[in-house]
């Protein structure tokens, strides 16, 4: 399949670029650690509810910063070059995949540094890790699409925050609520429904990105 092959090549290109520069990776690593360290200095080891809230806020800012780069680093000429080579759908699929990988890695780092600096109130660590990966996936999907829109609007990073924060609010609330189960030994009511809703949102975002991105690219 040429489409899948093209997509994978684009992902590989992004990965190779990243491995060569290591700029995004170390930049965000520093970002995560300093944020978590500041929280630690301000409030020590917070209780579980605060821990959960802070963790998701950290995740939010990490994803904004990690993903905003994915389109900004592409110069105009290079975008035009890709446009002449591949279908826009391959391009956005590659970006989505790459950002999922990046965000997965970042989520693990954020989780580990939160546990190191802020203590570990999590009872069910396997479940929480799963939710974190799921959260990283959802956030990266959403912000990739928004970064694509922001890239069209003069590469404006502030714009991404303006557009993104209202949109990610329901997503983040959903994630924080799902994650609550990892801190309490009792079963939460309505948990399957929330998972279903999250999956539905992910499918919606992927679908919209696939349908709308070709229009966005016609320049």
């Amino acid at each position: 399949m040429p489409v899948i092959h093209q997509t994978l090549t684009l992902v590989k290109k992004d990965l190779v670029l990243e491995l060569r520069q290591k700029y995004a990776f170390y930049g965000i690593l520093l970002y995560i650690i300093s944020t978590v360290f500041v929280i630690n200095m301000m409030m020590g080891q917070p209780e579980e509810k605060v821990w959960n809230a802070l963790f998701w806020v950290v995740q939010l800012f990490v994803s904004v910063n990690a993903i905003a780069k994915s389109f900004i680093q592409e110069s105009r000429g290079r975008l035009l070059y890709f446009y002449s080579l591949v279908h826009p759908r391959c391009f956005i699929a590659a970006k989505l995949l790459y950002n999922i990988l990046l965000m997965g890695l970042m989520s693990v780092i954020a989780l580990v540094s939160c546990i190191i600096f802020l203590g570990n109130p999590i009872i069910n660590i396997g479940y929480f890790t799963g939710v974190v990966m799921l959260g990283g996936l959802s956030l990266s999907l959403l912000f990739t699409m928004l970064a694509a829109i922001a890239a069209q609007a003069n590469q404006n990073a502030a714009l991404m925050a303006i557009m993104g924060f209202p949109i990610m609010m329901p997503l983040l609330m959903l994630l924080a609520n799902i994650a609550r189960s990892a801190f309490v030994p009792v079963l939460q009511p309505g948990l399957p429904n929330m998972f279903l809703l999250l999956a539905g949102m992910d499918v919606l975002i992927i679908g919209l990105a696939m349908i709308l991105f070709p229009f966005l690219w016609k320049d």
Partner: peptide, 16 residues
């Protein structure tokens, strides 16, 4: 173009 795309996105989220 950009706002039309965002508008569709917004409407798709308004319903859920």
């Amino acid at each position: 173009r950009v706002s039309a795309i965002y508008n569709i996105f917004a409407f798709a989220l308004l319903i859920p």
